[in-house]
Design a protein around this nucleic acid. Sequence first.
DNA 1: TTGTATGCGTTATCAA
DNA 2: TTGATAACGCATACAA
Lengths: 358, 358
Amino acid sequence: MARDPDAPRPPRAATAGRAPRATAPAGVVTLQQVAERAGVSPSTVSRIINGTAIVAEAKKQAVADAIEALGFVPNPVARGLAGGRTLSIGVVTQVIDSPFYGGALRGIEDVLQLAGYSPLFVSGHWTTTDEARCIEMLRARRVDGLILLDGRISDSAVKALARQLPVVVTGRQIKAPGLFSLAFDNLRGARLATEHLLALGHRRIAFIGGDPQHPDAVAREQGWRDAMASAGVPVDEALREHGGYIEEGGLRAMERLLDSGHAFSAVFAANDQMAYGAALALHRRGLQVPQHISLVGFDDVATSQYTLPPLSSVRQPVVELGRRSAEAVLDLIAGRKPTAELSAPEMVARESSAALPG
Amino acid sequence: MARDPDAPRPPRAATAGRAPRATAPAGVVTLQQVAERAGVSPSTVSRIINGTAIVAEAKKQAVADAIEALGFVPNPVARGLAGGRTLSIGVVTQVIDSPFYGGALRGIEDVLQLAGYSPLFVSGHWTTTDEARCIEMLRARRVDGLILLDGRISDSAVKALARQLPVVVTGRQIKAPGLFSLAFDNLRGARLATEHLLALGHRRIAFIGGDPQHPDAVAREQGWRDAMASAGVPVDEALREHGGYIEEGGLRAMERLLDSGHAFSAVFAANDQMAYGAALALHRRGLQVPQHISLVGFDDVATSQYTLPPLSSVRQPVVELGRRSAEAVLDLIAGRKPTAELSAPEMVARESSAALPG
DNA sequence: TTGTATGCGTTATCAA
DNA sequence: TTGATAACGCATACAA
């Protein structure tokens, strides 16, 4: 199929002679050739490259020279087949261009690259079917480990997976052999946000939640409730809305809040994107942030620093999440016990929240 | 190295007997097994799977049944080694979590997946060294094709690459065998933005440009100049600033513009992120958008719809760019001639631009 | 139309 | 310490 098999064979490059099956992209050096040039056996070359066994210093040098001279690069595909390790890690994210998880991908990429591994990024689209398909694909490609960034897959399915290969999963706390989990402290973060508003004197604090299907969405709502309860401030159920974690949802939720007629002086949105939508809704109604209504988001996405006004938010260590996840799979692969921990969420007060007037 | 080689051999699963080299993750079915069960030779199975030759309907069915029953999934690693095709496409992006190129990644993912290919995403970080490293890695992994999203690699290097494997490159227009290029019409987009402001009556239109190293940055500046020239409006060089394509840069640029003392009633920022920064700078000086200053961005990033005020911007068909790029590599791989074209940029007028008062 | 034999580039086993 | 030799799982040239 590649490059029209029926066509007359294109004249091979100058280095004709042997005409193999068109595998090697012409000019590719094999370990075999290195061995010949260095005057040793292929096994020895392999051993030197992988540090699998002790070899004589002289041969080591000869092989190093040959590798250098020939510009040899090991073929990961062949390595994968022969050795069973592909030096690749499957990463199941939900949306490849998520403004939030993007940082995690960066963290993963950094750590893996330094370790000589490559991430294989795939998107689960928050659906079990897509996730399952992705995971199957990754297993077929023989990844050495798996990082699951949140997702809808069940705990038991994750555990089953971990029996087959090292797995790191975020967004939940489960324990099983071959498995490591890592989660943000959403409860604490949401408490932080609410306490920030309470400290500013607000009492009637509305909450715009995410998709209740997400475990973090319920944790964030619980954090809001906990903080209110700790402060002895009753929660008005009419002040709880859902925005599905997207801008438009935040906008609609805010409109419903405004239309409900229930008074409030502050809003805590369970993510920054909903906060953006909420801010726009307020703006459309002629209400100013924070003069009329204080607004706090969650996640502290990159652009929140530059919104009008700059958005107060709860910072999640998301790049760190990526780094730790990658370190953890590497640990699992090496047979070490991962010990990664995430730093705590942090309240970043900017200009969208202010003291309750009066 | 994987899972402690020194430990006593873990008791193999129930299906012991042959104890191969620990490659197969226990319970993996091979084409061989399918062949046995179907009562045909491995080659026949292979032919059926790949449609490489005509086979008897009866055997076809038997093999299909066996595949179904055994849950056979071909091993891409072995396929890659044997057939020389890995069914994977290398995608060199610049930052894995770019708010702009994210859409392109999504488009690529969609198209490739439907064709049975997998993208391998890597980040070049806008540096030639990282890019070179990424490309080397991808070649080592024997990707069947390459998509280069912009990047700093030279045209000649791209052409050289295209002699080795199918390459699609965006952000420039070059022609060579095995190569296809695809670029946004930045010039036209920038003209559109400027003409929009001119149509609103603005004459003193400032420009905040991106990194002059980017070819698109110079095209966007040129578009601004062209539109001004066409309208017979002289360009005041003092109204041209650079913001490096980032928020902070936009903010600083706007401050410089304000401090310069040169009057202007509108600003065209060469991307949305700089526009955000610029808006914040105006806000800090007590200037309102669009009442005092009109603002137009470029790229129409997702959140621009929800900024305060919603940002007028030039929409680039970025998801389409991804889709077309993917289709084009697939074409090249199949020996077809790619014919992809991009739809034109579009001015999206929102609330950050308004008629010149008075 | 189908089966056999061989090779892809590397690692792992076993003797030496 | 080193080198043959046999896989790894599949695709393909060739023979039948």
